[in-house]
Design a protein around this nucleic acid. Sequence first.
DNA 1: GATCGGGTTTACAACGTTGTACATCGATCA
DNA 2: TGATCGATGTACAACGTTGTAAACCCGATC
Lengths: 336, 336
Amino acid sequence: MSASLKDVAKLAGVSVKTVSNVVNDYRYVSAATRARVRSAIDELGYQPNLTARHLRYGRSGIIGLALPELDIPYFAELAKAVIGVAEQQSWSVLIDQTDGRGDRERQTVSGPRAQTLDGLILSPLTLDASYLAGLREDLPLVLLGERVRPGTADHVVIDNVAAARDATRHLIALGRRRIAAIGDQHNSDAGTAEVRLRGYREALAEAGIAPDPALVLPAMSYHRPDGAEAMRRLLTLPEPPDAVFCFNDLLALGALRTLLSSGVRVPQDVALAGIDDIQDGRFSTPTLTTIAPDKEQIAEAAVTMLLERVNGYVGPPRELVAGHRLVARESTVGRG
Amino acid sequence: MSASLKDVAKLAGVSVKTVSNVVNDYRYVSAATRARVRSAIDELGYQPNLTARHLRYGRSGIIGLALPELDIPYFAELAKAVIGVAEQQSWSVLIDQTDGRGDRERQTVSGPRAQTLDGLILSPLTLDASYLAGLREDLPLVLLGERVRPGTADHVVIDNVAAARDATRHLIALGRRRIAAIGDQHNSDAGTAEVRLRGYREALAEAGIAPDPALVLPAMSYHRPDGAEAMRRLLTLPEPPDAVFCFNDLLALGALRTLLSSGVRVPQDVALAGIDDIQDGRFSTPTLTTIAPDKEQIAEAAVTMLLERVNGYVGPPRELVAGHRLVARESTVGRG
DNA sequence: GATCGGGTTTACAACGTTGTACATCGATCA
DNA sequence: TGATCGATGTACAACGTTGTAAACCCGATC
């Protein structure tokens, strides 16, 4: 058992509250008393019991971070950043993995575990409207990503239309004309897939390239095997693409695997670009051209907005658009 | 504010304790009362306040997982598994990133944040003896990995000597004779590096291959750039290796990058193997031969051992050796 | 008809903390 | 000299929960 205020008080011969006052640097404690209490604290190795504090304050000091899976590099890197930022402000982060399943996501936001949280940063995959219904109505919430109707909660995004457009423009600028897209998803509207698809189409339109529906491939999820599979199908087309834009880097790495093991040269035969700038893409061969979202900024903004809400800020839902930039690597421009 | 027992009690016209009894399925509550309380609970949407419970019980329901960095795939995959197992038993996991720095690790185990934890799973990089001194002496602890003198706490490992030996044997069986090792670390004794180096040497000795010190390269840390850099140096040797065993997969992926961008063929010119079986290695080109530790088993064992301690088990420190197996892929055996 | 016993319910205290209100004290001021 | 003031310290209650012990009620027992 660790020492409590009571133990310290007894040892120092003062009241419990006085010890509490010392611990909290309350102004009106005489130097003598303070010294006596301090030494008692040291002697007993007292550390305040955070659980009791949290009960008293009606807060837990813990925010939740709900994301699909930690072994997806983008989310791992994001989690790292979020934890880092939160830690700087003495907040702890509890990670919940939703597996991208709607029921798990709902449970996360409404289950008893959510009860302990002072706020939640949610990076949903399947978020629909019914979702927010289950919410503790007083739980501060920040949403990450695009799959949300604006106006439901604070959220942090990147401009996915622009990101996809930038990537596609880059491929066009290289002289490619048959540009495929991997990562379409039919079921979800207003999802990431839709906006990235829009950006892709806009870039094609700008360049006066007629869109070919056969070049737009769906992906069940956004993992490497999905990209590999989609690429296999693209290679069977009578007229295969000369460039592929994948809606995230994992899909691109999967596609890359298929290309290389099929003897297709990248980027000579097919140029390849993704989104996320995960670390793997910096060490693949060829290295992967990608759109790099500013993850630090995203994490920083998410935590900041959330803590503002936790601290009582009220106001209409806010949206922050974090920056992104094109990082051209070997998979499109070859070896410099 | 969410409803408390008191609110429910008032609505149902019973005492607070009776509501508590209903919530906890206490035996002696009449059917009528129970029904009345239940409906009051539903009406108010009552959910127990876990913070208060934890205070009452002297527990937080939260275990810590301290690891170097989440963006290292091995740790991300491990974290995923640990969180999954803990969740099944209704425990929450709080992740702490130590960055592999000793001071951060020490802070993790002794700082105020540790105060809230019921137990800690620690995967240290620089753990030394002074480390455990700062520990809350009553904090249940499970250590992961090898960098620990046995006898200090429960810990879960794989047989790193055997793992390294298996990988090296595999390279030898392919007919390679100049086998390099990347990942040596001088400063730490009894660390992962040392045991893996030992396994490597044992396998060489078995095969009657004279060890060449020039083929053993250190790595500052175990990230991709370290592997890439070490490989660069190996390639400058008058007699470069025909195989490389890296002490983890990230080093191997870094080395692979260097090899391929130098025009060296893998595995024809140089065969390559790592340890960890991270997902990247299944989609690199060539795919990466590796030693796969049973991460599920590790996570399962760590959580189980920890919760046993939390639940009062006392006894001498235990050690569990989790399984591992060789996964031969293209980087050694080429394309099947 | 008083006693017993078991089911059922309740009041109270406690986990460790801090806000509020009040008590105490010495010094200052009219 | 007595009132006032600020500095310092304290007792108490409360956050929401549950263990303990005791109270209550009813039917069965003697």
